[in-house]
Simulated scan of single mutants.
Amino acid sequence: MYYVTDPICSHCWALEPVLRRFEVQYGHLFTFHTVVGGLLKNWDGFADVKNGIGSPADVAGHWREAGEHSRMPIDGSQWLDNPIQSSYPSSRVFKVIQQTDEAAARTFLRRAREAVFAFNRNIGEKRVLIDIDNQIGLDGDSVVKEAEEGYGQQLLDQDFALASSLGVRGFPTIVLVDEENKEIKVVGAQKLETYVKALEQALGTENMQAKSIPVLAKLLEQEALLFSKEVEVMYDLQQNEVEAFLQKELTAETYSWHTILGERYVSRT
């Protein structure tokens, strides 16, 4: 399974709750590979006509709309105050980490998205990328320096070529490739059932064995924080049921409950 994405893709952020559950329940049936597609090289001549984006200021409203619709919090005011100039720096850092540690690379991507969408940090800036790397136990200065060298861009170009060969035109796109190299493509942030059906088609079966969902305490051990929407999707809850669920599943000493941009999230203490 190729997941073609970009660190600043708002619809990829919206997909996080569904994608996590899909991988938790069915990840044993496929190999997961993240491919970076290159959403924003720079603003010189950039235009996303479909979404009405021609300048950084245009992104703010688009992001807010995506956040309100998905309930994955997005601030977006940085596009007015301190615009991201390119998604390539964060993408290069991801690729450099991915060469030696796939799990760490995916953790970096998640933390970078939390930073840029919910906490309004500019992940196009070197100091922010170094800080995120340091927070996940890496040597931020070393990783970012390597990403800035030609090697980082070389890795990125390889991903661009792969995305192109898969016929990807937008993000997020998931491409399932079966044993006969036949491709099944799912474009955009879709419901869980859409990905399940695509995987059934790729495997040629309707009797896939889904793994059980881990208890919340175990899931929170793996994640620094989870937004309410992510808990809802993972455990089939309504929004107003989440707080009571947390109290039942976790001890007060192990988590804290916060609010940002009108949405709740739980984090490890």
Results as ranks from 00 to 15, higher is better:
residue 221 E to V: 10
residue 258 H to V: 12
residue 176 L to W: 07
residue 184 I to Q: 07
residue 127 R to G: 01
residue 199 L to T: 07
residue 114 E to L: 15
residue 247 Q to I: 10
residue 107 T to Y: 00
residue 211 K to T: 13
residue 18 V to I: 14
residue 233 V to K: 04
residue 103 A to Y: 07
residue 158 Q to T: 08
residue 125 E to F: 06
residue 105 A to Y: 03
residue 159 D to T: 05
residue 127 R to I: 12
residue 159 D to Y: 05
residue 43 W to K: 06
residue 24 V to I: 15
residue 123 I to F: 05
residue 69 H to Q: 15
residue 21 R to L: 14
residue 107 T to E: 04
residue 208 M to F: 08
residue 222 Q to F: 06
residue 184 I to T: 14
residue 255 Y to W: 05
residue 62 H to A: 12
residue 227 F to D: 01
residue 66 A to Q: 10
residue 215 V to K: 11
residue 90 S to C: 07
residue 134 N to L: 09
residue 115 A to S: 04
residue 47 A to Q: 15
residue 145 K to P: 00
residue 257 W to E: 12
residue 228 S to A: 13
residue 142 S to G: 00
residue 58 D to R: 11
residue 249 E to M: 13
residue 97 I to F: 02
residue 164 S to K: 15
residue 65 E to K: 15
residue 33 H to G: 06
residue 54 G to L: 11
residue 24 V to D: 14
residue 19 L to N: 11
residue 43 W to E: 07
residue 229 K to L: 07
residue 9 C to E: 09
residue 63 W to Q: 13
residue 50 K to H: 15
residue 222 Q to V: 11
residue 263 E to N: 08
residue 239 Q to Y: 14
residue 188 G to F: 12
residue 195 Y to E: 10
residue 193 E to Q: 13
residue 233 V to L: 05
residue 67 G to A: 10
residue 95 K to F: 00
residue 175 V to C: 03
residue 224 A to R: 09
residue 245 F to S: 04
residue 213 I to A: 06
residue 163 A to N: 10
residue 190 Q to K: 07
residue 242 V to M: 03
residue 70 S to T: 11
residue 191 K to F: 07
residue 238 Q to N: 15
residue 235 Y to V: 10
residue 139 D to H: 06
residue 94 F to K: 00
residue 16 E to R: 08
residue 141 D to V: 05
residue 267 S to Y: 00
residue 160 F to H: 08
residue 45 G to S: 12
residue 141 D to G: 01
residue 18 V to H: 02
residue 80 L to F: 12
residue 106 R to Q: 10
residue 37 G to N: 07
residue 73 P to H: 11
residue 88 Y to P: 04
residue 176 L to K: 08
residue 120 N to L: 03
residue 225 L to S: 09
residue 187 V to Y: 12
residue 128 V to P: 01
residue 61 G to K: 14
residue 147 A to D: 00
residue 66 A to Y: 07
residue 81 D to H: 12
